[in-house]
Amino acid sequence: MSSERVAVVSGGSRGIGRAIAEALGGQGYAVVVGYASAADAAAEAVDAVTAAGGRAVAVRADVADEADAAAMFDAAEREFGGVDVVVNSAGRMALSPVADLDLADLDALYRTNVRGSFVMAREAARRVRPGGAVVTLSTSVVGLRFPGYAAYASGKAAVETMTQILAQELRGKDVTANVVAPGPTATDLFLDGKDQAVVDHLAKQPPLERLGTPGDIAEVVAFLASPAGHWVNGQVVRANGGIV
Rank of each mutant, 00 (worst) to 15 (best):
N240L: 01
H201E: 14
D200P: 06
D192S: 14
S96K: 08
G81H: 12
L137A: 05
A39P: 06
T139R: 10
S140K: 03
A43P: 01
R127P: 04
T50D: 09
D192F: 07
P182Q: 07
K173R: 15
L170V: 10
V180R: 03
D68C: 05
F73C: 00
A94W: 09
E219N: 12
Y35Q: 08
A43W: 02
G116A: 12
L191V: 08
D47S: 14
Y110Q: 13
T161A: 13
A38Y: 09
V128A: 05
A150Q: 08
D65H: 09
A64Y: 03
A30Q: 01
G15R: 07
E219I: 02
D84H: 14
R111F: 06
L144W: 07
A23S: 06
V57D: 02
A75Q: 12
N88W: 00
G212N: 06
A121H: 00
L189Y: 07
A158P: 03
L101S: 12
T139W: 10
P214Y: 05
A61Q: 01
A48Y: 03
G215M: 04
G131D: 08
A203C: 03
V46G: 06
M120P: 04
T163C: 03
Q164H: 13
A7C: 04
R14V: 14
V9D: 06
G28V: 00
V236R: 00
A186Q: 10
F223S: 01
A48G: 09
R145G: 09
A23I: 00
R129G: 01
I16F: 03
A52S: 11
V198T: 15
M93F: 13
R129C: 00
D174K: 01
V141E: 13
A203Y: 03
D102S: 07
A218D: 07
E160S: 02
D40C: 06
V141W: 08
E209V: 10
G155W: 08
D192Q: 14
G132T: 01
R18P: 04
A108P: 09
L224F: 13
V199R: 10
R115Q: 14
S154M: 14
A157D: 08
V6M: 09
K194M: 15
A125N: 01
A151D: 14
A23C: 01
A90L: 07
V49Q: 04
A181E: 10
A42T: 11
G26T: 04
V179L: 02
Q164R: 15
Y149L: 11
A228E: 13
T176V: 12
G132Q: 06
G143F: 01
V237K: 00
A30F: 01
E66F: 04
N233H: 11
G82V: 15
R210E: 04
F146W: 11
N233I: 00
R122T: 12
I16E: 02
V175H: 01
F223L: 10
D84W: 01
V221G: 12
S117C: 07
D216N: 08
E169P: 11
V232I: 15
Y110K: 04
V57A: 11
E77G: 08
A39T: 15
S117I: 13
K156R: 09
S138L: 06
V244E: 12
A218F: 04
D74V: 11
A30T: 01
A197H: 10
P214S: 08
P147Y: 09
S89A: 15
